[in-house]
Structures are given as C-alpha cells and as structure tokens.
Design a protein around this nucleic acid. Structure first.
Lengths: 356, 356
DNA sequence: ATGAAAGCGCTAACAA
DNA sequence: TTGTTAGCGCTTTCAT
C-alpha cells in the first residue's frame, strides 16, 4: 500500500513534477520525439518508472491523428478462411505497431456499412475489408475519400480503385471442371455464399471480378473447350445458413437438376453439404463427386480424402496487412500474386451413369 | 464537388456555426445528453446532416473516460475454439455498443503481458482474456487494480479474484476415461498445449483449476474407481507445434509407453495427431482408440466418426461477453454454469491386445 | 434551456 | 536544449 488512495492515472504533468522538468520536455522524453538531453531523459524515465506512468494513447492519438489501430471487417470470423487470414493480419500488424479492431458483419451489408462508420468514428488509421457485396461501394468510396487507406481482401468491388489482395482462381477452377468433365460429369453444381441481388446465375450475369466470377469463368471455359454446355441452372448463390445449404443440396441432387458433382465454394458450405449427402445415403465418389474450395487439415482425414482447390490464405492475410501498412507509411502496396491450386485427392470419380 | 477542398473533418464548432447555436448546445444535441429544446435539436441535427458531421470518438472518449471498446486477448484466433468464442463475443458486444480490439498472443506469455499493456494504454473499457499461464497473474492483477473489469475465458488464474467463464469438464472426462477403461484400455495418453514450467505431469502437480486439471482429475477418478493406476507418464503438456505433436504421438505409441488410447485436448492437437496416426498406418479404433475435446462438424465426417467431449463454445463466448458488459454497467456478472458432455461416436473400441 | 469557459492528456509552435 | 503557450474535439462545470 502506498499512494493509491484515489484512482487517478498518472499523467505527464505528474512525471514532470517529480522529474522537475517542464511538461513539454517530459512529454518529449516519454514520447521519444524532439530534442532531450540525456540527463533530462534519464530523470524523466526514472520518475515515470517510479510513478508507474503509462501514456494515454487516446490523448496522443487525438493530436497526432494516428491511432495505430487498423480496422478489419469480415463476414464471419468463425469461417476458417477468415480466422486464418485474421491470424496472419494480426501477426503482421503487431510487429509493425498496429492493433486490430475487428468487426464481424455476419455477411450482412447494412452491418458492414455500420461497421465502416464505427471504425471511421474511432479514427482507425486504415481499413482491411472483405466486402459482402461486390456492387455496393458508397460506404467504401467514403473511406477512400476520407484519405485513409483501404485494402480489400478476397474480393474486389466495382468501380472502387483500391488495392485488392485476392487469389487468382480462374485456372484452378478450369482444371477442376476439366477433371470433372474428364470423369464424365456434366451436371456440375456450384454453391456459394456470395450475396447477390438475384438468386439465379445467368449467362453474362455481372459478378464483377469476385472469386466466384473467376471460378465460374474457369468452369465455363472448361465446358466450352470440352464442347459441352455449362449448366447455369446448377449455380446457387446466396447460400446462407446450414439449413439453407442442406436444402440446396437436396434440390440439386433431385430432378430436374440431377447434379452428379458438387463444388462447394468454401469449407463451411462443404461441411453442411457433406453431412446432407451422408444423410441422403449417398457415397462419395461413387454416387457423387465433390470438390471444395479451400484446403483444411480435415479434408485429408475424411473418407475419401477431398479433392480441393487450395488458396494460400495465411499468405493472403500477410499480404493484405503488408499492403495496408505500406500505404500507411506513404508507400505503394507491393505487387503480389496468388494462384489457387487444384489438389486432386479422392472425391472425384465417374458418375454412376456415365454419359456417352 | 462542393466544399471539400481541404480535407478537414467537420467538428461540433462547424455544426454550431451553421445551426447558429453555441458549441455547448450543439454538443449536447449531438451527444444526446443534457437539456436541449426540440427546436435547437432539430436545427443542429439538420446542420450536422448537411455537413456530414461524424463525432470524433477519440475526443469523446478522452473526457468521458469510456472508449466503448473491449480488449480481447486469446492465444490463437485460428483455433476454432477461439474463433467461435470470438464470434460469440462479437455478436454479443456489438448490440451492446462495444467494439472489440483483438490481440493474438500466439500462446506466448510475454506477448500476453504486452497485449494487456497495450490495451490499457488504449483505454479499453474492459478485458476478456484467455490466459496462457495459470500461475502468472501480475499483469492481470494490474488490470484488476486499475478498476477496469476483467473476465477470464476458459481458464482461471491462481490467486486472481475475477469472474471466470469456463466449462466444467471433470465429469465428462471421468466418463470418457470410464468408457476407455470399460473397453479395456489402461495405457491412456493425454496431450495438451497447456503451458507449464515442467513438462512431466506428476501426482499432485499444481495445475490450478484449469480445464486440463479438471480433465486429468476426472480421468484419475475413473482409474481410481476402476482400481487401476493412472498412467501419469502418458500425460504430455506443452504440445506446441504440429511437428511437436506428431513426435509426441510417435513417442507415446512406442515402447516403453505403448499407449492404446489417445485423448487430444483440442481440435488442433487432434488434427496433427490423427495425421500422424494415419501415417503410422494405424487404424482407429481397431489399433488405437481416440477421444478429442471439442466437437467440430468434421468429426462426424471422418471414418470412424470421432468420440468427443463437447463444450458449448458459442454459449461460453456469449456468457463471457455478457458478464463483462454487466460489470461495465456496474452490475454483477450472472452465474452461469456450463458442463462438457461426452459424445460417444465411433473412435473407441477394445485395444488390439486386451488386458485380462 | 442556453452559453462561456475550463478542462481531458497529450503534442506542436514558438520563443528563449 | 528547454520552457511557454496553444491547441486537438469533445464534455462538463457554472453561471445566466
């Protein structure tokens, strides 16, 4: 017990009093800026130590204009894709002196707009956002206009000129579709959570340059090269809840769709889909072929091991944080390219009734 | 293009000028406090709208002393346990008006201490911490002394009198061990990431009231009731990296340990262990029985489906956030109890050479 | 209900 | 190098 009767934080003024120097000099010594004689510095530091001084970052931020905090907005932190990316962002930002204010939107567009507003109000130095919608940019444009750097993760947004860190997946999707075609599949379904205005995927449907657009593009190309018609009616977007996904799977497997292969655009979808497939008593790959985007450890443990399209998610997270930090330091974001890769394990085989 | 030549944020003063009221009244109208006539309020709000006014939360925080931000410190956000808890915390804090500053420590004690310091400097209103060590409380005690509420997630810390939200797992562990014993297992190994000073688990080893202590306690009880000796030498703590875990598994399966069953204390460990087991050409459950703590969707998809001890992780996250928010509002944290549950699926069977 | 003025804890100009 | 004086944008006395 010593001098802590009334809980008041010690301030520069207190330290200054003990060190017997002006507040300004004290602040300079403590903040590590300006010119301070080593004599004064040591006296100040000692006094600070003795008083247990801790700087009030809010006050500091207020007049420097920098909070040393970056805002991260994702749809679902529970999704391994994002939690891994988050880990990478955190690992990268920390040593650079930035902390992370995380907002989860639950893949809800209004929530994302609100998140951006909150982060702006809290004066974060920069933003990393994995946007829910690819064609809704007003709030993001506002960020750009505010002069605070913004880097997009995973998907681009129409008409928004900012750095985007994403994985090129056209080629890997092409190869995945090709693999399915070679095995005799034509009724290939694709399920994604991507939020769009319309539910149906039509030819020429505007998906911008989202991963989904690339993936569907790759698949189309494979079908075209094979001289087959791409089954647009088997593309399902806006897959949200577990139940929603299961129902979609049931639908796709029944007439008139009769899918013989399913591609799940992320691991969350895959998990729901695989359970539903098991429930239906269907066996992979004999009854149905399956491809999942993202590679997770458990995909090697299931029977059969899953054929996947893997992305370097951790590296993506590092890159997005690095890009933002460069911008924050007034530089340009480094050019980085990431390519998805098809890993053929055991969940693709010929459909039960191969077409000629 | 109108009035945005020099990028200066609009402030209460600006709004006051347009609304033709004093700065004080404007601030009151904008901040929703004090007494403001409806006439003034509407004029202020209109002016604010017109100028696109956004409050500077840093400034606001500086004199209210509340940042409406809570600090969350976890070991590994990539671990599904934490990312799910994080999701729950976020879902709970958001509607209550709190944002989340997340710091990942990589299960490193010094990093945790630093994290706490940073969060204190940033003046977060409260803390949610899943402590790395259970016997290192100086930095946490400092938080308590600062008067800012702290709630512990998952594990308690010796000598620290704060709310702890965790799962009671003694009974479920007892049942798990009992199940193994009934099946004829005596060489039961337990692998955990828990950081301790010593690597070996000895009788009476002080693990406080960590989940691991409870689990081992439950297992001991089962062995005792069965009149068997508990194989302390098969308990492995400090399991860190993937390679580390794999090596531990190899060791445990070989003489002189000859484990016939492995219990993995979380899903990350389980994943590494299962791969190593597969690499060794061992079959579950015929060659080896396996139990994992935490229930994840993929455990139902592997062959055989895994016998697990499940915890209500999302509920835990909600509870920890709720407790903190109650404290922040000056109340007491609600009493909540969570009980782990054994779910026997298919990864436990008799060992290859049953003892009499 | 309103306004003037005094802070919050710090940094930034400006002199000395 | 040092100290003095203004602020940052907001809230909060304290009068009126």
């Amino acid at each position: 017990m010593s001098t802590n009767s009334i809980r008041r934080e010690t301030t520069v003024a207190d330290v200054a009093a003990v060190a017997k120097v002006s507040k300004a000099q004290t602040a300079r010594a403590l903040g590590g800026y300006g010119a301070v004689s080593s004599d004064v510095r040591s006296r100040v530091l000692e006094a600070a130590e003795q008083l247990g001084y801790r700087p009030n970052m809010l006050a500091r931020s207020m007049n420097t204009g920098r909070s040393h905090t970056i805002g991260v907005v994702v749809g679902d932190i529970q999704n391994p894709y994002f939690s891994l990316a988050m880990r990478a962002i955190s690992d990268t930002a920390q040593p650079a002196g930035y902390d992370v204010l995380l907002i989860n939107t639950g893949e809800d567009a209004p929530a994302e707009r609100e998140a951006v507003r909150v982060l702006q109000d809290k004066r974060v130095d920069g933003f990393i956002i994995a946007p829910v919608l690819s064609d809704d940019n007003a709030h993001l444009q506002a960020v750009v206009d505010s002069g605070r750097p913004l880097v997009l993760l995973d998907r681009a947004v129409e008409g928004l000129d900012v750095d985007v860190i994403a994985t090129a997946s056209e080629q890997a999707s092409f190869e995945a579709a090709q693999l399915l075609l070679e095995n005799g599949h034509e009724r290939v379904a694709y399920i994604s959570t991507l939020r769009t205005r319309s539910n149906r995927y039509e030819d020429g449907f505007a998906l911008g340059s989202t991963p989904v657009a690339q993936r569907l593009g790759g698949m189309r190309r494979a079908f075209k090269e094979a001289g087959k018609e791409f089954p647009s009616s088997l593309v399902r977007l806006n897959a949200g809840t577990d139940e929603n996904i299961r129902q979609t799977v049931r639908e796709l497997l029944a007439p008139p769709f009769d899918a013989t292969a399913i591609m799940a655009s992320d691991s969350v979808i895959a998990l729901s889909a695989l359970e539903e497939i098991a429930n239906a008593g269907l066996n992979i790959p004999t009854d149905l072929s399956f491809v999942m985007f993202d590679d997770l450890p458990w995909t090697r443990l299931v029977t059969p091991p899953l054929t996947v399209v893997s992305q370097p998610v951790y590296e993506l997270g590092v890159a997005v944080a690095t890009a933002l930090i460069r911008r924050l330091r007034g530089g340009k974001a480094p050019e980085t390219t990431f390519e998805a890769k098809l890993i053929n394990r055991g969940s693709v085989a010929a459909p039960p009734t191969p077409k000629p």
